[in-house]
């Protein structure tokens, strides 16, 4: 078995964050989180439901586009993923663009369901492969969805963790700060600090992000690859085949 590719490390890392989840939903433009959800599903001791937006095989909704959101508001979705052109130290995410709204310097696709699901899904995992001061900023230019809310705002959901191409952070809601948990192979805490535009706390025992073992890699390169290919054929084609 060839060693884990960087993408496979991310898939395995996100899958670990989904342990114990009953129903995970995967939104638009999310091939790595989607693959992680399928990996978590095959590893789960109990039945785990994976809903993938855009899928025929893994999307049992029958009441239209609104059903995902209605389910989330009722507490029927346990985990979801958000990315962002920018993510800041208070876990605010920006999917709208960089610069001054509306004639932005860089226009991104838009907020999708973030402004809603971030409030209502208990375990939201932030994922962005690029880990640079350009993406991880002190303050986002546009808040598509806020990381934390005032106590009077109904908010059972919010950020749990941030996974990038270089490190894994947890989010502490009370402190409104990220904590560095582990760095991916080849990285150091100092390099992560230099690449991160916001201040964060350090866990007591920062280690290296756990690489997937051969059995996990075989799953990623087999059933997970096959499952994600339905919605993300180009992504699946670039994964290492079994």
């Amino acid at each position: 078995m060839s060693p884990a590719a960087p993408t496979e490390l991310l898939i395995a890392t996100i899958a670990r964050l989904l342990q114990g989840v009953g129903h995970v939903a995967v939104g638009a433009s999310s091939p790595i989180p989607g693959a992680a959800a399928f990996l978590a599903q095959v590893l789960a001791p109990e039945a785990m439901r994976v809903t993938v937006l855009g899928s025929q095989r893994n999307n049992d909704f029958t009441d239209g586009g609104r059903e995902l959101f209605d389910c989330a508001a009722q507490g029927r979705i346990d985990a979801f993923f958000l990315g962002g052109g920018q993510i800041d130290g208070e876990a605010n995410v920006n999917l709208v663009g960089l610069g001054a709204y509306p004639n932005l310097d860089l226009r991104l696709p838009g907020s999708f369901g973030s402004a809603y699901l971030y409030f209502l899904v208990p375990r939201v995992i932030l994922f962005r492969e690029e880990h640079s001061p350009r993406v991880l900023v002190p303050k986002v230019d546009f808040i598509s969805a806020p990381g934390v809310s005032a106590p009077e705002i109904y908010r059972p959901g919010g950020p749990q963790a941030l996974v990038t191409g270089r490190a894994l952070f947890n989010f502490d809601k009370a402190k409104r700060r990220f904590t560095l948990i582990s760095v991916h192979p080849g990285e150091t805490v100092e390099r992560i600090k230099a690449a991160t535009g916001f201040a964060f706390d350090l866990a007591d025992d920062i280690g290296e992000t756990l690489a997937p073992d051969d059995a996990t890699l075989a799953l990623i390169r087999g059933p997970v690859r096959d499952a994600i290919a339905e919605v993300y054929p180009r992504f699946a084609a670039n994964l290492i085949p079994n």
Partner: peptide, 23 residues
């Protein structure tokens, strides 16, 4: 074409979020 038109202001945009449009 969307990106270009919105940046230049040729097309106005009302940014929304999925469940708001459904609702």
């Amino acid at each position: 074409r969307f990106t270009d038109a919105v940046k230049s202001g040729r097309v106005r945009i009302k940014d929304s979020t999925c469940p708001a449009i459904h609702a």
